[in-house]
Amino acid sequence: MLDRTTCYENLEEPQKRGQATEAIIQSAFVLRDVPVLVPTYGTDAYDLVVEVGGRFHRLECKTAYRSSESTVAFETVSSCHRRDDYGQRGYSGRAAYFAVYDPVNDNRYLIPVSEVTGDMMELRFRASAASHRTGLDRVEEYLLGDQLEDLRRS
């Protein structure tokens, strides 16, 4: 039987990995009795909208990948393709949270866009010699269930 990471790697098209991640994230919210709205068109700067505590939150779904033996990472920018322009754009003001699926550890994270700096975010899931590096956040800080409880209380 294939493990999750291998299943993701076997999806050759990035769009299929993205679709799988969105489905996994969506089901994680539904299982926690959180209403999920899906935009009709794929042109918005967010993938899902969830209603928590009577408020709506725009989510951008991302797939984490192993970046070292003790960390996973995900991209925090989108690539913009226009006729004669190519660039990257952040999500500040366009989405409130990154909803991240980590197939390496089978975890789901909810990370405020406002806490992200740079073009990628790296999350540490195990202590290592590089644990002292700045810019590494512990995965426990962003687990979906805990973040949802915080949102419900605020």
Results as ranks from 00 to 15, higher is better:
Val36Pro: 02
Arg138Gln: 12
Phe98Val: 05
Ala20Arg: 13
Arg83His: 09
Thr43Ser: 15
Leu148Val: 13
Tyr142Asn: 02
Lys16Cys: 09
Thr40Lys: 08
Leu144Lys: 06
Pro39Trp: 03
Ser131His: 12
Pro39Cys: 06
Glu51Thr: 05
Ala130Val: 09
Ala28Thr: 06
Gln26Phe: 01
Arg138Val: 13
Ile111Val: 08
Tyr142Leu: 04
Val113Thr: 03
Leu11Lys: 02
Leu31Val: 05
Glu75Val: 03
His81Leu: 15
Glu122Pro: 09
Glu140His: 10
Tyr65Glu: 11
Gly42Ser: 00
Arg138Met: 12
Leu11Arg: 03
Arg55Cys: 14
Tyr46Gln: 10
Gln88Leu: 10
Glu60Ser: 11
Phe98Pro: 01
Ser114Pro: 02
Met120Lys: 05
Leu11Pro: 01
Glu12Thr: 15
Ser70Gly: 10
Met120Arg: 13
Ser70Met: 13
Pro39Leu: 10
Leu2Arg: 14
Val34Asp: 10
Ser70Phe: 13
Leu136His: 08
Arg153Lys: 12
Ser70Val: 15
Glu140Ala: 12
Pro112Ser: 13
Phe98Arg: 00
Glu22Pro: 09
Ser92Cys: 02
Val36Ile: 03
Val104Glu: 05
Val49Thr: 03
Arg89Trp: 09
Cys61His: 03
Arg108His: 10
Ser92Thr: 09
Val49Trp: 13
Val72Pro: 05
Gly18Tyr: 04
Arg133Leu: 15
